[in-house]
Simulated scan of single mutants.
Amino acid sequence: MELIQCEPEMSAYLVADDVIDHEHAVVRGIARRLRSATSDAYSYAEAAFTHVRDTIPHSADSGDPRVTWRASDVLEQRTGICFAKAHALAALLRAGGIPAALCYQKLDTAHGLIALKLPGERRWVRQDPRGNKPGVDAQFRLDREQLAWPVRPELGEADYPWLFAEPHPAVLRCLQEAVDRPRLWQLLPTALEMPEACRQA
């Protein structure tokens, strides 16, 4: 599948905003610690991925009722669903100077992950920091994708090819409106409409 940038300028995938707030002290502190333990962009990206995948439990797996959406909160509170964990990983990657995009799949509900572009690489590569459990084995790979959920087209599942610099509005809205995770489960979109700007990209 060819991944499509919604934003023509690579700089859009390095921006700090209210969600991917990589100028926040919490994000900067973790990024600094990861950089000190790694030697290059690849090892930093892999360490950031592993940190988010393994040290921040997916709230559905842990039973945590809290809903997070801002990257610094996800990293500080150590909880979040797939979308929130994608925001956290994007923030750590951007803090390390690595372009990171948000992308999505259509499963039983929409599912969030990221794509990154390492220096010298010509293509974006998707990574899924959702968190592993029995039956889920997402790994950091550049040679091929190893995501949490390979799509099953026969069940109506699909990969969305668009790369977002900011969260999809429907995703962010449900995260911000949910008072707890049970309510969030009621609000999650089953599919995502693509903004016109992405359709024209």
Rank of each mutant, 00 (worst) to 15 (best):
A88I: 04
G96F: 02
L107R: 07
D73F: 12
A84C: 08
T68E: 14
A88W: 01
L116A: 03
A90H: 00
G63Q: 06
K85P: 01
G80Q: 05
L92E: 07
D108K: 15
H111C: 07
L116H: 02
A95C: 13
I114H: 06
L75N: 00
L116D: 00
R123Y: 11
R70F: 08
A110E: 08
A88V: 04
A90G: 03
H111T: 07
T68R: 14
L113W: 02
A95I: 10
T68K: 05
W124S: 02
P99S: 12
L89R: 02
R122K: 13
R122G: 14
L89T: 00
A84P: 02
G80L: 04
H87W: 08
L75F: 00
S72R: 03
V125F: 06
L89Y: 00
W69E: 11
R78I: 05
A88D: 03
W124T: 04
G63Y: 05
T55R: 15
G63A: 07
I56W: 05
T109Y: 08
E121T: 11
H87V: 12
C103L: 13
T109G: 02
Q105E: 12
P119W: 10
R123I: 12
D73H: 13
A110I: 08
D54P: 03
H111Y: 07
P57C: 09
V74R: 00
Q77P: 06
S62Y: 07
R123C: 13
A88H: 01
D54R: 07
L107H: 07
D108A: 15
W69G: 12
R122I: 09
A110M: 09
A60N: 12
H87L: 08
G96A: 09
G63C: 07
R123F: 10
D61V: 13
H111F: 03
L89W: 02
L116V: 07
S62L: 10
D54K: 06
A84R: 01
P99E: 14
A71D: 01
K85L: 02
P119S: 10
D73A: 15
Y104K: 00
Q77D: 15
S62I: 12
R94V: 08
E121A: 15
L116G: 03
P119V: 11
A110H: 05
P119T: 11
D64I: 10
R78L: 04
A86T: 12
L89S: 01
V74D: 00
